[in-house]
Design a protein around this nucleic acid. Structure first.
Length: 911
DNA sequence: GATTTGCATGAAGAG
DNA sequence: TCTTCATGCAAATCA
C-alpha cells in the first residue's frame, strides 16, 4: 500500500501534477497520515501509544485550522493528519492516487465529481466498520447490522470512503451502543429511533463526533457533503446549519422533518439524500470559510434538537415531556457564537408552564447558571455577551434600557439591561434582579432560563434549582475512570474496564474540546436500566434525577458553575454519596513510603504530619488475633487469593501473589490460600457488614450541610473569634464564592462587611494564621472525640460494646463467633491462629488494647474527626450547646452521635 | 455606616 | 493570544 501510494504521490490533475512533498518537505510526517486500508481514511498513528485513530483524521477542524494536528485521545500527544501536514495538501482519490488540494481549490466544483465506492468493509485493526457512501444512498439504507460496534470500546465508525465518512466515535460502552443494539433488535435493521439521539446528544459533548468533510473545505468532493449553503438560514431553521446540522441530524438521529429519525435517512441526508443540494443537482453557493466550518463543526458537535422552531424533536410526542434537552439557540444576532453552555435545557413541561395557553410558542433563548455574584445581593446578573447581544434589545449606551421580563407565573419583573465597557468590549448585566432572585429563592448554582414568547416577542424567564450539584473531586473522577469505584457498574471484567478507561479517557479529554456537554439529554433519554441496558454511570446510586446525578452532569455543572469556581454545592444525598465515595478513596491513601512523619502532640493526642502527599494503595483488610497480633490481608489481582502481608507493607494498586516477597511460600498463585474458606468468607462478610453499617450510619446522620468548606469556615471563625456568633453561619455559605476564602468579608460574601472587619486579613495564609486554624480544628476534633468517648463509655455500661456498633443486628452483636471487621485501616478481630479458628475473642476490647499499646492515649479516627469538623459551625455549636469557645463542654446528651465504626484506628494523620 | 455603582482585574476558555 | 466574565474594590451615594 505504501509503495503504491508512494508511486501515486503526484497530483492526479494532469494540469498540475504537483509532486507529493519530499522527505525534506515533511514527507515522513505526511506518510504517517497515508491511508491504511483501502482508502478508508488516513490512519493517524500516535507515536506515543501507537494506537490508530482513523476517525480523528477526518475532523473538519484539521482543515479549518490548517494545522494538521490534533491531540491523541489517549495520551494527549499530537496526532498528525497527513493530508494537510505539508505545504501540499493531498486528497485521496478512489481511483487511486492523490490530488493536491491546491488543484482542488483551483479547479472548483466541476473538476472532480463526487466519487463513491460501493463497498462496505471492516476495519481489521479495530473492527470498526466503514460503510461507504453509496451504502447510504437513498433506497439503500444502511443495514444496521453493519453498525457493528467495536468489541473493545464500542466504537462505531461509519465512514464513506471517498470523502464523506461519518463517524460516531467512542460511543460509550453500555450506553449509546446498547441503545443502538436494542433498537436494532426492536425495529429491525433499518431504524435507529429516537433513542439514538440520546446517544448523540450526550456523545456530542462528551466525545468528538466527527464528520469528515475533509475535502469539503475546498475540494469538489466536498459538494457531496455540503448542503444547501445558499439557503436562507432563516427559511428553514432546522436545516440552516448546513453541513454541521446535517451531520447533526445523523448524529442526533433527528431528521429535519420528522420526530423520529431513521438512521439511513439521516445519514444520507447530509450528502446523498435526494433532498440534499447535491442530489438535487444544486450547486453549493459559497465556499465555506474556515471559520464557518469551525462554527458548523461546533454546531454539529453539539447541536440538539429544535423544539420551538420546527419541532424536529418533540419529546412530548415521543412521550417524554420531562426530557431536559438542550435546546438549540433560537434565531438571533450572533447566535452561532452562542456557547452550548448557554443553550437552554428546558423541558417541554416547563415550556408549557411558561406558555400557559397553547396558542403561544415558547422559544427558549438561553440559560445561565447563577454565579455567586449573580445570586448575591448586589442585584446584578451578568449576562453572557453573546446571549445579550443575540436575544436582548440592542443597546448603544452603557445606561442601557429597561427590560421587562415575565416569570413563569406571569409576574413581570423590571430590570435594567445595560452594559459596562470592558476591555474594548462590553459586559452586559441585568440590574435590579435581587427582588426576582429572592422571590424565586434562587441561589448560586441555580439556573435561570430566558425564553421568548411568540408571537409578541415577550421575554420570559424560568429557573431551575440546582438540587444535585456536585463538583466531583478529581480523585473520584480518576477512581471512576479506573473503574475502581464503579467497576461493577461499568463492566464486570478487567478487559472491559480497560476499554472503558480508554473510552473515558477520551471522554475526559473531549470535555476540553470545543463541544460542550449536553449530558442531561443523554440521561433523560437514557434507557431504563430495567430494559437491560447497562448504565455506565451511577445514576441509580445517586438516586436522583438521572441527568443531574450523572458524571456528565457533574462535569457540566462544574463547568457551568465555573471552572473558576471549584466549589462544592452539595445536596444532602449527593453529598452523602460523594462523601462515601470519597472516603472509599481516602481509605486507599497511605502515607508515602518515603515520608517521615512528624509526630505532633496536641493535648495528649498524637498526630502525624507528613510533608509528602499520600499515595494510593491497594485495599487491604486488617485482622487481629486473640494474641493481639495484627495481620494484613491483600487479595491477589490474578488469582483473587488472599495473602497475608506484614502490617506495615503498602502495596500498589496492582498486586499479585508474585509480588509477595514477604512470604516466599505464598508467592505463587498456585499456592493455596492460608485462610480457610469459611474464615475468609466470614471476614469478607463482616467486612461488607461494616461497610454497610458505615453507609447506614452516614445516611442516618442527615447532616444538613456537608460543605467541605465548613471546616475551614469553622477554623476561620475561630481565628477571628466569631465562634458562637450566629453570623458565622454565613461564613460557611459564602465559601461558594470561589475566590473567597472562608471568612471572606467581601460584599458578595458577607454583607454588611464593614466596621467589624478583623485586623488580620481573613484570607491570610501566613504560618501563624494557618497554624491557628489547624490547631483550632484539632481542638474541635478533640472536643468532639471526648464527647463521643464519654457517650461510648456511658453506652457501654448499658449494652455490650459490639452492640453499639451493630444497630442492624449483624452477626457482630449476635454471635460470639463474629469478628469485628472494619474497612481498610480498621481492624478485624480475628483469631486466625487460635485453636478455635474463626472465633472471635470476646475478651478483646479494642479500646483497652489500644490503650495498652499506646499508653492509654486514645487514638483518633481521622474520618471521625473530619466528620465532626465538616459539620457546619452553626449546627456544631447548636448540637454542642456551645455559645462560644470559652464555653467548655456542652450537654453531652445534645452532642451528635459519632460513628463508632472504628474503635481502633491507626494514627490520625494530618497534612 | 451601609449600600450602590462603575470599572478593573485576572483566571479560564476559546480561537 | 484574545475574549469572556466572575469577581474585587473603591468611589459615590444613600439612610
Amino acid at each position: 500500500m505504501a509503495a503504491a501510494a508512494a508511486a501515486a504521490k503526484r497530483c492526479m490533475n494532469a494540469a498540475c501534477g504537483a509532486p507529493a512533498p519530499t522527505a525534506a518537505a515533511g514527507a515522513g510526517e505526511w506518510r504517517k497520515g497515508w491511508p491504511l486500508r483501502s482508502g478508508a481514511g488516513f490512519a493517524v498513528l500516535c507515536d506515543k501509544c501507537g494506537l490508530a485513530y482513523e476517525q480523528l483524521v477526518f475532523c473538519d477542524i484539521f482543515h479549518q485550522k490548517e494545522s494538521g494536528w490534533r491531540d491523541c485521545s489517549f495520551c494527549g500527544k499530537h496526532l498528525h493528519c497527513g493530508c494537510v501536514a505539508s505545504k501540499f495538501s493531498f486528497d485521496l482519490l478512489d481511483s487511486g492516487g492523490v490530488q493536491c488540494m491546491s488543484c482542488v481549490k483551483n479547479s472548483g466544483a466541476q473538476s472532480v465529481p463526487c466519487q463513491v465506492s460501493p463497498k462496505l468493509f471492516l476495519s481489521q485493526s479495530n473492527q470498526r466498520l466503514f460503510g461507504k457512501s453509496d451504502e447510504l444512498l437513498p433506497g439503500r439504507p444502511l443495514e444496521l447490522p453493519s453498525l457493528m460496534l467495536d468489541s473493545r470500546n464500542d466504537d462505531v465508525a461509519i465512514i464513506s470512503k471517498s470523502h464523506h465518512p461519518f463517524m460516531v466515535k467512542n460511543i460509550e460502552p453500555g450506553q449509546s451502543s446498547n441503545v443502538l443494539r436494542r433498537k436494532e433488535i426492536e425495529n429491525g435493521a433499518r431504524q435507529i429511533k429516537w433513542e439514538q439521539s440520546t446517544l448523540s446528544i450526550g456523545d456530542m459533548g462528551k466525545l468528538p463526533f466527527l464528520i469528515r468533510s475533509q475535502s469539503a473545505l475546498e475540494s469538489p468532493q466536498s459538494q457531496c457533503t455540503r448542503r444547501d449553503d445558499n439557503r436562507d438560514p432563516t427559511a428553514d431553521s432546522t436545516t440552516s446549519e448546513s453541513i454541521s446540522e446535517a451531520g447533526l441530524s445523523m448524529s442526533l438521529g433527528l431528521a429535519s422533518n420528522g420526530n423520529k429519525m431513521e438512521a439511513t435517512s439521516t445519514m444520507e441526508r447530509p450528502m446523498l439524500s435526494p433532498t440534499t443540494p447535491f442530489s438535487e443537482g444544486r450547486e453549493p453557493a459559497t465556499t465555506l470559510s474556515p471559520f464557518q466550518h469551525a462554527q458548523r463543526a461546533r454546531h454539529f458537535l453539539t447541536r440538539p434538537p429544535r423544539v420551538a422552531e420546527g419541532a424536529a424533536f418533540d419529546p412530548m410526542k415521543d412521550g417524554f415531556p420531562h426530557l431536559r434537552v438542550a435546546r438549540p439557540p433560537a434565531e438571533g444576532r450572533g447566535r452561532n457564537q452562542l456557547l452550548p453552555r448557554y443553550w437552554p435545557r428546558i423541558t417541554d413541561q416547563e415550556l408549557q408552564q411558561i406558555s400557559g395557553d397553547s396558542n403561544s410558542t415558547i422559544v427558549p433563548l438561553f440559560e445561565k447558571v447563577l454565579s455567586a455574584s449573580d445570586a448575591g445581593r448586589i442585584g446584578r446578573l451578568v449576562l453572557p455577551k453573546a446571549c445579550a447581544e443575540a436575544y436582548f434589545p440592542p443597546i448603544s449606551q452603557p445606561e442601557g434600557r429597561p427590560l421587562t421580563i415575565q416569570d413563569a407565573k406571569g409576574k413581570e419583573w423590571h430590570f435594567q439591561f445595560r452594559f459596562w465597557p470592558n476591555n474594548n468590549s462590553r459586559m452586559y448585566v441585568l440590574e435590579g434582579v435581587t427582588p426576582c432572585i429572592q422571590s424565586l429563592q434562587l441561589q448560586a448554582g441555580d439556573t435561570v432560563t430566558f425564553s421568548r414568547i411568540e408571537p409578541g416577542g415577550k421575554l420570559v424567564m424560568g429557573f431551575r434549582k440546582a438540587t444535585n450539584t456536585v463538583n466531583m473531586p478529581d480523585s473520584q473522577i480518576t477512581a471512576i475512570a479506573t473503574g475502581s469505584l464503579l467497576g461493577d457498574t461499568f463492566f464486570s471484567n478487567t478487559n472491559d474496564n480497560l476499554a472503558i478507561v480508554n473510552g473515558y479517557s477520551g471522554f475526559l479529554q473531549s470535555m476540553k474540546g470545543p463541544a460542550d456537554l449536553q449530558p442531561s439529554s443523554l440521561y433523560d433519554h437514557h434507557p431504563n436500566p430495567a430494559d437491560g441496558d447497562v448504565s455506565w454511570l451511577k445514576t441509580d446510586r445517586f438516586g436522583s434525577r438521572p441527568d443531574e446525578g450523572s458524571l456528565q452532569y457533574l462535569q457540566k455543572r462544574s463547568r457551568n458553575i465555573g471552572s473558576k469556581s471549584r466549589r462544592l454545592l452539595i445536596d444532602a444525598e449527593d453529598a452523602l454519596e460523594l462523601k462515601l465515595s470519597w472516603e472509599e478513596a481516602q481509605e486507599l491513601l497511605r502515607p508515602a513510603p518515603s515520608a517521615k512523619p512528624t509526630v505532633v502532640m496536641i493535648e495528649d493526642y498524637e498526630f502525624e504530619e507528613y510533608d509528602e502527599p499520600p499515595v494510593f494503595a491497594k485495599r487491604s483488610i486488617f485482622t487481629v488475633r486473640s494474641t493481639g497480633e495484627q495481620d494484613q490481608w491483600i487479595q491477589c489481582d490474578d488469582c483473587s487469593k488472599w495473602r497475608r502481608l506484614p502490617l506495615n507493607v503498602i502495596v500498589a494498586s496492582k498486586w499479585t501473589c508474585a509480588d509477595n516477597t514477604w512470604d516466599p511460600k505464598s508467592c505463587s498463585c498456585s499456592v493455596p490460600e492460608e485462610l480457610a474458606p469459611k474464615e475468609l468468607q466470614s471476614i469478607l462478610q463482616q467486612y461488607e457488614d461494616i461497610r454497610r453499617r458505615k453507609s447506614s450510619f452516614f445516611l442516618k446522620q442527615n447532616i444538613p450541610e456537608m460543605d467541605a468548606s465548613s471546616l475551614d469556615a469553622l477554623a476561620t471563625a475561630a481565628v477571628f473569634g466569631e465562634v458562637g456568633n450566629q453570623g458565622a453561619a454565613s461564613v460557611a455559605t459564602t465559601t461558594k464564592h470561589p475566590r473567597h476564602r472562608p471568612g471572606c468579608t467581601c460584599i458578595v460574601c458577607i454583607q454588611p462587611p464593614s466596621g467589624k472587619g478583623p485586623k488580620h486579613n481573613p484570607s491570610c495564609t501566613c504560618n501563624v494564621c494557618m497554624t491557628v486554624r489547624r490547631r483550632f480544628k484539632t481542638l474541635m476534633m478533640r472536643k468532639k472525640q471526648r464527647q463521643s468517648e464519654r457517650e461510648e463509655a456511658e453506652a457501654s455500661k448499658k449494652i455490650p460494646w459490639v452492640g453499639r456498633d451493630d444497630p442492624e443486628g449483624s452477626n457482630l452483636s449476635r454471635s460470639p463467633q463474629t469478628v469485628d471487621i472494619a474497612r481498610d485501616g480498621d481492624v478485624i478481630m480475628f483469631d486466625k491462629l487460635d485453636t478455635n479458628k474463626g472465633h472471635i475473642d470476646l475478651n478483646f476490647h479494642p479500646g483497652s488494647r489500644e490503650e495498652q499499646q499506646h499508653g492509654g492515649q486514645p487514638r483518633v479516627s481521622m474520618i471521625s474527626l473530619l466528620e465532626v469538623a465538616n459539620r457546619p459551625l452553626e449546627s456544631y455549636m447548636k448540637q454542642n450547646g456551645l455559645v462560644s469557645l470559652a464555653v467548655e463542654q456542652g450537654n453531652p446528651s445534645t452532642a451528635p452521635v459519632l460513628p463508632q465504626l472504628a474503635p481502633v484506628e491507626r494514627r490520625a494523620t494530618l497534612r
